[in-house]
Design a protein around this nucleic acid. Structure first.
Length: 489
RNA sequence: CGGGACGUGGCGUAGUCCGGUAGCGCACCUGACUGGGGGUCAGGGGGUCGCCAGUUCAAAUCUGGCCGUUCCGACCA
């Protein structure tokens, strides 16, 4: 590992990839746009995933698995949906390879498939194909299914975690007998997304509805959580869609009501992806690397001993082991980094780079005085405390760091959301970075023009919008909505 | 798909203009000394210089072609 990472202020993009590669979160795959999630990065994802999974299950959802391969014809069944994904699909056309005279590997032309297969960019179509088979009566509803899966979107420009050709996510697909219930489901999930972001990722998010131009292809309404990254750009961190009867109609999924009428099923779908890892990096990271909120840190407490030889290490272990076990028994993820031939200083830097929220430093100085040195990653403060208090101190400290990281990120976001009244101010702030809350006349044209001129997009129409006395920032007409504009990833 | 840049040990690069023994930093291996913020010294391994052809006594270096990567634009969670 080479020393140091590019400072955030110098080159944010380079800083971001430096953090990922040097903290060993991920690496580039051999096919353009693919990535390998390394064990440390995957451990973070598993913690994030487990929390979502717990909350989905607690709200009545079950996991299932649908196929990776989808008949090409399925995608065409919902007109808006095809248009949304047509330009970024991987397509399977053949099923065999062969070696030719030169001993090179070729696609065997005789293995051409009769119907080409696409690799799922999302699973609405296969799932609704199956739902048609499963739904007959109102008694079969609701269906509340989630799947953890990979999807493929053939992207032109990719970035680790934020946009890769293949990524991991969860996609929920629910079917309901009436609109209200489907909308309620859509918003219930959005609430879970928001709560996990706030309470576990320590990442404040704005919630709201997407404009027509920004919503999911095939949805009636798309709701989202939007977060502000450290460079003041926006990142869509999760979406929840009310699909109305669009997919039910496309796949002819009807059910019999209590009154023996026939009606199309109402639907929702929703997802968060490994993109969240990118968000965590950019919301919390600093010039020393990653900062992980304790809730999703694979190692919450790293113990770094000072020792010259096995004998000294043994004495330190005798001193510290009981406390390590006690922390571990409390469910705290604690690790003793006793790798030999690596200086404590090296370990300090490495664990700071990897974002471990707290560190205990233990050497003979501490042993003699019955103390231990505690370092917290969020503020980089060090303190020497009595060894007797280490358990409660550390466990409280983790809670404190979790809260503090949210407060820090929330303050940062709020300081960088601006109200403006003229388009000049608007452009000025968009250039400097930040979110803008302002009026919009509701037309696709002004939204598009603003995007062309400033690269800013409407991130969402916040739930608490107050458009009444506002004018459109672009046309000056009375505002239809109060919206959040920002440059986005 | 348009425009620019670049391909030299695992990573980052010098050398290319002006052809002549492939060099450096990091990482890696061995040993000793070290250890309170990325240790020091000594020794060591690893490169058909993206590929193919051409010019030449001689090509990382010159010429032509091909391939790949990357950055900037249109598209996107």
């Amino acid at each position: 590992m080479s020393k140091g990472i590019t400072p955030k202020s110098e080159d944010h993009n380079k800083w971001y990839t430096d953090v990922i590669t040097k903290a060993e979160l991920a690496d580039y795959g051999p096919v353009k746009g693919t990535m390998v999630i390394k064990p440390y990065g995957f451990a973070i994802w598993e913690l994030v995933k487990d929390e979502f999974d717990r909350q989905f299950k607690a709200t009545g959802h079950s996991n299932a698995y649908f196929p990776l391969f989808i008949p090409k014809s399925f995608l065409a069944k919902e007109a808006d949906h095809v248009e949304g994904f047509a330009k970024e699909c991987a397509i399977v056309t053949h099923s065999r390879l062969m070696t030719d005279e030169d001993n090179t590997i070729q696609v065997d032309p005789s293995s051409k498939l009769e119907e080409e297969i696409i690799v799922r960019p999302t699973s609405e179509t296969v799932i609704w194909h199956m739902y048609k088979k499963w739904i007959n009566s109102y008694r079969d509803l609701p269906i509340l299914i989630n799947q953890w899966a990979n999807v493929v979107r053939w992207e032109m420009r990719t970035r680790l975690f934020l946009r890769t050709s293949e990524f991991l996510w969860q996609e929920g697909h629910t079917a309901h007998s009436n609109k209200d219930e489907a909308v309620e489901e859509t918003l219930k999930i959005l609430d879970i997304y928001k709560n996990v972001s706030h309470n576990h990722l320590a990442m404040p998010v704005l919630t709201g509805r997407k404009t027509n131009a920004e919503k999911f292809a095939g949805a009636v309404d798309t709701y989202c959580i939007e977060a502000m990254m450290g460079d003041k750009r926006a990142l869509q961190a999760g979406t929840s869609h009310y699909l109305g009867q669009n997919f039910a109609k496309a796949f002819d999924v009807k059910f019999q009501t209590e009154n023996n009428n026939e009606e199309y099923v109402f639907a929702s779908s929703w997802g968060v992806s490994t993109r969240l890892i990118g968000a965590i990096i950019m919301v919390h990271g600093d010039d020393s690397g990653l900062r992980l909120p304790p809730s999703i840190a694979p190692t919450q407490v790293v113990v770094v001993p000072f020792f010259k030889n096995d004998d000294e290490l043994k004495k330190i272990k005798d001193y510290i082991d009981p406390y390590i076990h006690q922390l571990s028994n409390m469910g705290i993820r604690v690790l003793l980094d006793d790798r030999p031939k690596m200086s404590p200083g090296f370990k300090f830097n490495e664990w700071e780079l990897k974002g471990a929220p707290t560190r205990l430093e233990i050497g003979f100085k501490e042993i003699e005085n019955n103390t231990i040195t505690v370092f917290r990653r969020d503020t980089k403060q060090k303190e020497n405390i009595s060894i007797d208090s280490v358990i409660t101190y550390t466990s409280n400290l983790l809670d404190n760091i979790q809260d503090n990281m949210f407060v820090q990120a929330n303050d940062f976001m709020n300081k960088n959301i601006f109200s403006v009244s003229t388009y000049d101010e608007f452009k000025n702030i968009i250039n400097k970075g930040g979110f803008i809350r302002c009026g919009w006349d509701g037309s696709d044209e002004s939204e598009k023009k603003i995007k062309e001129e400033t690269k800013a997009t409407i991130r969402c129409i916040p739930f608490d919008e107050k458009p009444d006395n506002l004018n459109c920032i672009f046309t000056g007409k009375p505002a239809k909505h109060e919206v959040i504009f920002a440059k986005a990833y």
